[in-house]
Write a protein that binds this DNA or RNA. Sequence first.
DNA 1: TCTGGGGTCCTAGGACCC
DNA 2: TCTGGGGTCCTAGGACCC
Length: 422
Amino acid sequence: MIKVFGLVDCHTCYVSCERIFNPKLVGKPVVVLSNNDGAVVARSDEVKAMGVKMGTPYFEIKDQVKSGKIIACSSNYALYQDISNRITKVISEFVPAYEVYSIDESFIDLTGINEDLEKLCKELKHQIYRQVGMPVGVGVGRTKTLAKLNNWASKKWKAKTGSVVVLLDAERQEKLLKFADVGEIWGIGSRTNKRLELLGITKANQLAQYDSKMLRKMFNVNVERTARELNGQVCFDLSEGPEPKQNIASTRMFGKRAYELLELRQAVATYAARAAVKLRKEKMLTSCLQIFIQTSRFDDRPYSNGTIVGLESPTDDTRELIAAAQAGLTRIFRPGFPYAKAGIMLSQFEPKSGYIPDLFAKPARRNADNLMSLIDLVNKTQGRGTLRFAAEPEAASWGMKREFLSPAYTTKWSELLKVKVG
DNA sequence: TCTGGGGTCCTAGGACCC
DNA sequence: TCTGGGGTCCTAGGACCC
């Protein structure tokens, strides 16, 4: 059976999320800022037209924000995730199989659907807009890589007002490959792009025609697969259901430099607790915790260090993880540096169900499971931070800056949108 | 002054084994 | 001058993604 893949992608996702609940932002130049209001992570079309690049540091556009030329929003991931979940629900009602690829993209499997696919995708787009308020584009092709590229084309080809591009016959697909730069292809990043240029490969069709065995030799198996996919040969299949995570990270830049061990201890405890929540959500136990601290990479005298702390026995107990993180921190902390960032990473997981501690393992603390479930439940229903460990401060000097935060419209009762009638 | 966070996969190279 | 040849496993780092 010949496969058909689609890619549904939210148009300027975070900006559109903000616009759903604040229609005043529609048609205006809007950016969404990263954590700590550090840099631009999403731009509306109006802002793109002004020449503001992705990743621009906030201070470079501060004047335009102050003077009202650009509207800034702090990122509100709880809101974006909630919108994303609603979109997934609409998709799930439309197609037999799909893969949530990221917060703003999903692959859909259209194989064997005996309908006008363009019409079907337009209807899907329409329903997502009607039910959730999110504008999306859809690209359809013989492989994931082609679906991605066709989705890109849906934004580039002005004639395609419907934002749905379906290319299933080789000739029409080839036309796009001739038009698209290799750098636009999914899986070809800036490094590979530069090296391909040296070989004289600048357009997607040239990569498709290049000897794939040579590509494997000169680059790696992924570049080879990407080239094959451009020819319609499926190398990346749909993966249904999220793969179990292999790593869990919680890392943050500080809102303000931290110098004292105490500040870092608090930060690290907060991150460890956050990672522990994610771990329990995955229903996994970890036996390896990594911790790192670093000054800003723009500092004259940078210091960066990390260490690995093995856990005595696999655990998902926040207290164990905080203790391990503190032990690691003591090893790598050096006084006198302006620390800008710290982080925790967990790895080496095993499923919690069916875990049998070995005879000599350190026993889990009493009632650990009940305590952790209770904490998670309270924090989920009453808001993050309602219950926390003593090592985590309520408000920290190094905490996140979020000057332009929108309300939690959909995830906190107290911040539900109020509608006036009459 | 101010520059994101969280992932995955692949590869090269070292350690170790017989 | 020449200096086994496979394996496996692990890790750090690179490259990519959104």
